[in-house]
């Protein structure tokens, strides 16, 4: 149907393309740990040694866990398997709420205690008007 040259081009371009996809796949696989924006409390528990590097931890803010103290806020990040206590001094974003997603950036003191210097609120994929949210019982 097609000429010999066209066939050769199809084979060549597809092999280049497949090679590229494979190499991108391998690179992404190798970098997996560094691509994630945050780690979950369970992953923190699995860490064998705590290094001094800055990390991000994410999950849900546990219900009734937010404590406003004089100059700091403390709360618990949970992934419903493991918990991690966090303290932070500074202002939190508007969407920071109990039972909503959160990402904390800072330093790990030990496997159960995290000192954050930045708090980001994570929004989920649900969008709805307030009335609908109320009728769902939130």
């Amino acid at each position: 149907m097609y000429g010999k040259k066209v066939k050769l081009r199809i084979i060549f371009i597809s092999s280049v393309f497949i090679t590229l996809i494979l190499s991108v796949y391998i690179i992404l696989k190798l970098l997996d740990d560094n691509i994630v924006y945050f780690k979950s409390p369970t992953e923190i528990k699995k860490l064998s040694d705590i290094d001094k590097k800055k990390i991000r931890v994410g999950g849900m803010v546990k219900k009734d866990s937010i404590n406003f103290e004089k100059e700091s806020i403390s709360f618990i990040i949970t992934d419903f398997k493991n918990d991690l206590a966090v303290t932070f001094s500074g202002s939190v974003p508007n969407l920071f709420q109990e039972e909503k997603g959160v990402v904390a950036e800072g330093f790990l003191k030990d496997q159960n205690f995290f000192v954050a210097d930045k708090i980001l609120a994570k929004h989920d994929e649900n969008y709805m008007p307030p009335e609908v949210s109320k009728s769902l019982g939130n």
Partner: peptide
């Protein structure tokens, strides 16, 4: 990956979270 960005709200198979 674990991202700060929310997952897709509109999926072809399971409808919309919007």
């Amino acid at each position: 990956w674990a991202t700060l960005h929310q997952p897709s709200s509109i999926k072809i198979l399971s409808g919309s979270a919007i």
